[in-house]
Write a protein that binds this DNA or RNA. Structure first.
Lengths: 144, 144
DNA sequence: ACACCATGCTTGCTATTGCAAGCACAGTGC
DNA sequence: GCACTGTGCTTGCAATAGCAAGCATGGTGT
């Protein structure tokens, strides 16, 4: 059994918190959790209960499901295929160009992964995990 | 705070277990949980952690989300604007870093839109590059 | 120099999770 | 009658979730 991936969960929460410009205490209060405990969660020292996770998710205004997936608690929903594209298109919070950018990057990632072991002519992607360069190329192209 | 509705969660699990013709011990073993603990959960005496809930859901072959909804941990169906993140996280076709990148860009877009006050679907010539810059900064940070 | 405030971290501590061992009751067979 | 097996429940106990109080550091004035 995988056991929760507490480390990456904590990192993810911290990342989201900083992204939202919250201090640790601010988020802790917004989530109704003590600040030392949140600190420990973020550093991967504690595995928060479902209830606490839910409160944190609410305070961060992200879906609890996202957190659960990050924590390895929730399995990835199969058939994610076109879900990303439709979800992006349906989102009223971003504009059309932003949608197009996101989808282009997404496509590029998928294409890169599909090639995987195959011919890599694009300026040497050293190993299979280096998708960054391909992604960067795409963003350079479309984010201007 | 609301606190999970443990009673109905336990009843629900017991119902599903009987429905599947499992004895308490059978389900306990299948879920990798001790039988007395499962008994207590079903009677609403304990609030199981997210991890345990997940294992039970797997053993019962029902979605963990269903259990979370029953437990009051997950809201029934949240607004569509959470869908993008969830869809990205759930997509098996891209790897973790790619997910992170997409979500970061998405967050940046949303944040930028929030600062502007509203989403203007297609901008005029005045500040047409603004979104591009924000997106680029994010991708430069995470795509190297 | 000093006070003041915000940041995140450490330290005990209590309450709760989750388990191993065992109990009580009901069949079933001999 | 008696053993045996399956059902769910009770009882301690170890591990840990989660908190209140306080510490250390860094900034910002004055």
């Amino acid at each position: 059994m995988a056991g929760l991936n507490v480390g990456s969960l904590g990192e993810y929460i911290r990342e989201q918190r900083r992204n939202a410009q919250y201090s640790l205490r601010q988020l802790a209060e917004a989530a109704g959790v003590s600040n030392p405990y949140l600190s420990q969660i973020e550093r991967g020292l504690r595995r928060p209960s479902a209830e606490i996770l839910q409160q944190i998710a609410k305070a961060l205004r992200i879906s609890a499901e996202t957190l659960y997936v990050q924590a390895g608690i929730l399995d990835e929903r199969e058939e994610g295929d076109r879900e990303v594209r439709t979800a992006i298109m349906a989102d009223p919070a971003i504009n059309d160009r932003q949608k197009r950018v996101l989808i282009e990057i997404y496509e590029a990632f998928r294409k890169e992964n599909a090639q995987d072991g195959a011919v890599r002519d694009e300026r040497g992607a050293a190993d299979g995990t280096e998708n960054g360069k391909a992604g960067r190329a795409v963003t350079d192209t479309y984010l201007e």
